[in-house]
Computed example of a mutant assay.
Amino acid sequence: METMMKGEDSEEVEIDLEDSSDPDEYDNGDEPQTLWRAPPAMEEEENIHTSALVEISDTKPLINVRDPRGINDCLKVTFEDVIAEPVTVRSGDRVWIWSHALFEVSRVWIYRIVTVLLAIPVSIISGLLFAIFSCFHIWMVSPCIQCLSVGTRWLQSLWSIVLGIIVLPFCKSAGKCCAGFSVHLAKE
């Protein structure tokens, strides 16, 4: 039996999918567990500042997933990847623990300091270079390739005819000649 109840203060929907043949299940006074709670309604004031254009923007940074394509998977380095002691040669436990802690702290904080110093200038230079290369490609390379393609359409047709008349029959006959050969390997 399915039961749906809506509370007055919060939008809560309860769906009971249990068998109705067991009426003594909730005799201890406990209410059934809420299986699904509807999200609170979004106020119009909250939607004023968020539009569909902002949600799909290319300039909105990814905060949680900063390497979605796995470009820098090779940089996933841990302490154990750099320093590893075999069973036969070991330092003291405290030395190992402190070395591990200092490695992690220095790796994280030096990276953060260097990124504070270099991230913004490198981002600006990279954006400038990609903008220049994109503009050059869009306005120079692509039109030149299209002009060459239009101007050499006759050459493309001629080349396909030459391939079809001369090269294709030669390759087919060479393939049929070579198909008659067989190689048998035997151990002696």
Rank of each mutant, 00 (worst) to 15 (best):
G70V: 03
L102M: 14
T152L: 14
V13E: 03
D30Y: 09
I132Y: 05
Q156M: 05
L155D: 02
K187D: 03
T59Q: 11
V105G: 02
D19N: 13
V114W: 09
A179P: 02
S51M: 03
E8I: 13
T3G: 05
C74A: 15
P169R: 04
V122W: 01
H49V: 12
L155S: 06
C147R: 15
L75P: 00
H100P: 03
Q33W: 09
W109R: 11
A84Y: 05
K76S: 04
G127H: 10
S106W: 11
S10R: 15
G7H: 11
L163K: 14
W159M: 04
V65K: 12
C144H: 11
S142E: 15
A186P: 03
S126F: 03
L158V: 07
A186V: 13
S123F: 07
S149P: 00
Q156T: 08
S182I: 04
T152S: 09
N28K: 02
I63M: 10
V82Q: 02
I63L: 12
L148P: 01
L148C: 09
S57A: 02
N28A: 00
C178G: 13
P169W: 00
V183G: 01
N47L: 07
K76N: 07
S126Q: 11
I120G: 00
G180K: 15
V150M: 07
M4E: 10
E14N: 09
R66T: 14
T78A: 05
G92W: 06
I113K: 05
P143K: 02
V54R: 13
I138Y: 06
V65D: 11
S51I: 01
L148H: 07
N47W: 06
L128F: 09
W159T: 00
V108I: 14
I113P: 03
D81F: 00
M140W: 14
E18W: 03
R37C: 00
L163N: 14
I63E: 10
S99Y: 00
Q146Y: 11
H184S: 03
T59A: 08
M4S: 08
E14R: 15
E80H: 06
M140Q: 07
E11Q: 10
E43N: 08
C178W: 09
E44I: 02
C178P: 00
G180Q: 12
I165Q: 06
N28S: 05
V150L: 09
R66F: 09
F136N: 07
A101H: 05
L75K: 08
S134F: 11
